[in-house]
């Protein structure tokens, strides 16, 4: 009885009870979720502004943009599809070596290198995605870790191709699209990395707000129910894992092209772990977590290692422990709650 009255009461303001003229409201709700928010414009304005405002920090900014892209790619599988990985650096490394070798063997145009690196990393991602279809989070952690270890060892042993532990030196990319030469200040590098990041971000943003993206969130939330609505989960997971590998491969290629060498360290476990840390700092599942986290992580690392070159990892560790214990989500929720109340009062 009380239920029925609340029902009518709540339905009344939205128009006629039959609901026919009010049918644009659901559409607006769904479309509204993918509408650009002011904070997003601000974020990208700052990123572009930094190109002009911080001319002596372009190398660092370039590093941030590339880490942001790498972490964005991890967010695609972790934040949106719920797939944990401890071996995402495998794809970063494959892209980095692919771009480096391509440049050394005559194809020095960077955009071509990006596409080739993305394609190769994507192909490896596609094949390895079948290994993570089944099993628990723990098995996925172990499988992804194992795959990354295999590639690390391959790069180490195939030293006549990769340079082994010495790395791949003397990578000299040509001008981007034959127009923009890389410079020693990293200005071209940052502009290039930021442009690539932005384009891939736009694509990722469209994908997560599409029916495909919705089905990924559903899979992450409840795979049993997703299956019982007719969703073939395996295909969706293969698709998003492949996409994430392409993104990571492109990030690796950007790193090679803008730093002009490849170190074996790119396939280290620490790289994969760093990406997870960045997502812990920035948050998963809203696309900006990897980017915001990359800014925070890099600045923190840069700042701490300037203050205490020997002990920066100690402080970084302490920061992470405090962050996780206090709970970033709780802090963000509180800020969001205050904002919502302020907006609600105005409305």
């Amino acid at each position: 009885m009380s239920d029925a009255s609340t029902l009518n009461g709540a339905a009344a303001p939205s128009g006629t009870p039959s609901g026919t003229p009010a049918s644009t409201a659901p559409r607006d709700f769904l479309i509204g979720k993918s509408r650009w928010k002011p904070a997003e414009f601000a974020f990208w304005a700052v990123a572009v502004g930094a190109l002009f405002a911080l001319p002596d920090r372009h190398l660092l900014l370039n590093e941030i943009a590339i880490l942001g892209l790498f972490t964005l790619s991890l967010d695609l599988i972790l934040g949106f599809a719920g797939i944990v990985s401890l071996g995402h650096a495998a794809f970063l490394g494959i892209g980095a070596y692919a771009a480096g070798l391509l440049t050394k063997h005559g194809v020095s145009e960077p955009l071509t290198g990006l596409l080739a690196a993305g394609a190769l990393a994507g192909a490896v991602g596609f094949l390895s995605s079948f290994l993570i279809l089944r099993g628990t989070d723990l098995t996925r952690l172990m499988v992804t870790l194992g795959v990354a270890l295999i590639f690390h060892e391959l790069a180490n042993r195939l030293d006549w191709i990769t340079g082994g532990a010495d790395g791949l030196l003397g990578v000299a990319p040509g001008p981007i699209a034959g127009l923009f030469e890389f410079d020693i200040f990293g200005t071209t590098a940052y502009a290039y990395s930021l442009a690539v990041l932005f384009v891939l971000f736009l694509l990722a943003r469209r994908i997560v707000h599409s029916p495909f993206g919705l089905s990924l969130r559903a899979l992450k939330d409840n795979r049993l129910r997703a299956g019982s609505l007719g969703i073939a989960s395996a295909r969706r997971i293969v698709a998003v894992y492949t996409l994430a590998a392409v993104y990571a491969g492109i990030a690796g290629a950007l790193l090679t092209q803008t730093t002009q060498f490849v170190s074996l360290e790119i396939l280290d476990f620490a790289r994969s772990a760093d990406a997870l840390l960045v997502l812990v700092i920035g948050g998963t599942g809203y696309l900006y977590g990897g980017l915001v986290g990359a800014v925070a992580f890099t600045l923190l690392k840069d700042g701490l290692s300037a203050i205490t070159p020997a002990y920066w990892l100690f402080w970084m560790g302490l920061f992470l422990v405090v962050l996780v214990l206090v709970g970033r989500d709780r802090m963000v929720e509180r800020v969001r709650g205050l904002l919502a109340r302020a907006v609600g009062r105005r409305a």
Binding site: S23, P26, I31, G32, S210, F212
Partner: peptide, 17 residues
């Protein structure tokens, strides 16, 4: 149409309606 990645959610009126 559940695997379409290029469309914005909510732009297919037959689904939303």
């Amino acid at each position: 149409t559940g695997a379409q990645w290029w469309r914005r959610l909510g732009t297919r009126s037959e689904v939303v309606d």
